[in-house]
Each structure stands twice: as C-alpha cells, then as structure tokens.
C-alpha cells in the first residue's frame, strides 16, 4: 500500500542510509542530565495539570492540624515549634511519599513503565526526575503552612530560609521512599496503602510533640526519615539555633535520600524488565 504522493517522494530523495545511523546501528543513549531535566519538566507539568487540588488538600490538612493543636499547645514554646515544623514537613510527606508511591504503583500496574523502558534513558533519570518534580511541587504548600503556623503560634520568621534546605532534603528522603514503595509493591492498591501509612506515620510521629509519647513510639519516630526534617526545621525557631545539630539532622535526610533513591532506581530496573 502506498499513500504517499509522487511529489512528496520527489521532494525528499530516498536515502540509502539514515543520516544519524552509527556503524553498529545503535542510536546514542540519552544522557543523564538532559533526560533528568526532560523527565522533571514533564512530571512537573503533569503534577500541575492533575495534582493542584491535592496540593490544596495537603496544605489545608496541615493548617487544620495546626488549628486543632492550638487549643492544646502553648504559643511560642518548644511544643509549638514541633507542631509547626511537623505540619510543614507533613505537606512534603503527603505529596512526595504518598502521591509518588501511588503514581509509581499505578504506572507499574498499568504497563506505563514500558514507555520509559523502551527509551534509552538512564533509570536514575526517570526516578530522580519524578522524585524531584514531586518534591518541588510541595514548595508552595510547605511555605504557606510554615508562614501561617508561625503567625498562629507566634514564632519568628527569621530562619524560615532553612526551608530551602529542608524541602529538597526531606523531599529526597520521602520521595525516594515513596518511589521505592510504589515500584516494589506487588499490587497498586498495596502501593497506595503503604504511601498512606507512611504519611499517617509522618503525621502522628512528626506533628505530635515527642516528649509525651511512650518510649517505643519515640524509637519508631527515630526510624522515620521525615522526623529529621521536622527536627532540623524546629530547631531553627529558637533564639540561638544549634546549627551543628540542624546540619546533622539534614545530613541524615540527605543520607536516607541517597539510599532510598538508589533503592528506587534498582526497583525501577527490576520492574521495567520482567
């Protein structure tokens, strides 16, 4: 069958060999950074199209929690700092952990990974691009929550700039965890469940002041990566923040981020070729 007009064929002469063909017939691989950028951009645009309502939900949820806690917790105290920091990081947990776990769970179940697996793109670009996009998507919600929280609990806005480190590092840790859960869960419902549980844990263990909890809960709290983001942020509300400890907390986030993103990349490879 031929539906190409004779003119069309004359205009573009027949080439015996494609111009970009290599000797071995292999097209070049996509490079790490450009493809990371392309995935990031596509995912951010996806999130903008489909996830804006969810960002509102995440923000209102955190603000609602702070309103509730205001009746229990004194203004300006250590507990107030923990509540505001916990609520702000909760937005990151909602989007980066919960939504990303759901996304990868569904993508894997529906065969959407085939699209990426048949492109010559490094697995790390796909995972990091998606994780990065989801983490960036939390920025407005986290900042709004932090500012509203500071106003409600009479906390200083002086060191709010630390969010510029807290969001990417806690975001890396939580989105890496979310991506790994989504890609490892055998069924999409399970990925959703794990993402929800992770977010609930971040809520209960991150927002509620740790001092009043039983000892085993405090251990569980130490195991959750979001805790270190919360602690780092909460410490900066004081008059003389202990920057070394803040750095240490952020270092834990970064470490967990690297490890969980590595696991997620491995899980992606495993899920892509069955």
């Amino acid at each position: 069958m031929s539906v190409v007009s004779a003119e069309a064929l004359r205009e573009r002469p027949v080439e015996a060999v494609p111009e970009d063909a290599h000797d071995d017939g292999l097209a070049p691989r996509a490079k790490f950074l450009p493809s990371l950028g392309a995935v990031y951009r596509a995912q951010l645009s996806r999130a903008r199209v489909a996830r804006i309502p969810l960002l509102f939900v995440a923000t209102f949820q955190s603000i609602g929690i702070m309103i509730l806690m205001r009746g229990v917790v004194d203004q300006g105290g250590r507990e107030a700092q923990a509540v505001v920091a916990g609520s702000a990081v909760l937005v990151v947990a909602f989007v980066a952990l919960n939504l990303l776990a759901q996304y990868f769970g569904q993508l894997r179940a529906a065969g959407g990974l085939d699209h990426y697996a048949t492109l010559p793109v490094p697995p790390a670009s796909v995972v990091l691009g998606a994780a990065g996009a989801y983490a960036s998507f939390t920025v407005p919600g986290t900042v709004v929550t932090a500012v509203v929280g500071c106003a409600m609990f009479d906390l200083p806005l002086t060191h709010l700039w630390v969010l510029a480190a807290v969001i990417p590092l806690a975001g890396a840790a939580l989105s890496g965890l979310g991506a790994a859960l989504g890609l490892l869960a055998p069924r999409p419902e399970l990925a959703t469940l794990l993402g929800q549980l992770g977010m609930s844990a971040a809520l209960l263990l991150g927002v509620l002041p740790a001092d009043r909890m039983p000892e085993f809960v405090q251990y569980a709290r130490d195991l959750l990566p979001s805790t270190y983001g919360v602690e780092a942020f909460a410490r900066t509300f004081g008059d003389h923040p202990d920057w070394a400890t803040v750095l240490l907390d952020l270092g834990v986030c970064a470490g967990v981020g690297v490890a969980s993103l590595a696991v997620a990349t491995w899980a992606y490879r495993r899920a892509a070729v069955r």
Binding site: K31, A42, D114, H115, Y116
Partner: peptide, 23 residues
C-alpha cells in the same frame, strides 16, 4: 497498548519529552 505514562501530558510535551529521552 498503554498510554499511562503520557496521559497527563499535553500532546506537544509528550512528543518532545519522548524525543529528548531518545537522546
């Protein structure tokens, strides 16, 4: 047979991103 990976992108971005990921 599945379009899940591209569903929420615009037609233009889906084509462009795929091209970028082909190097």
């Amino acid at each position: 047979q599945e379009s899940t990976a591209l569903d929420e992108l615009t037609v233009s971005l889906a084509a462009e991103t795929t091209g970028r990921l082909r190097g």
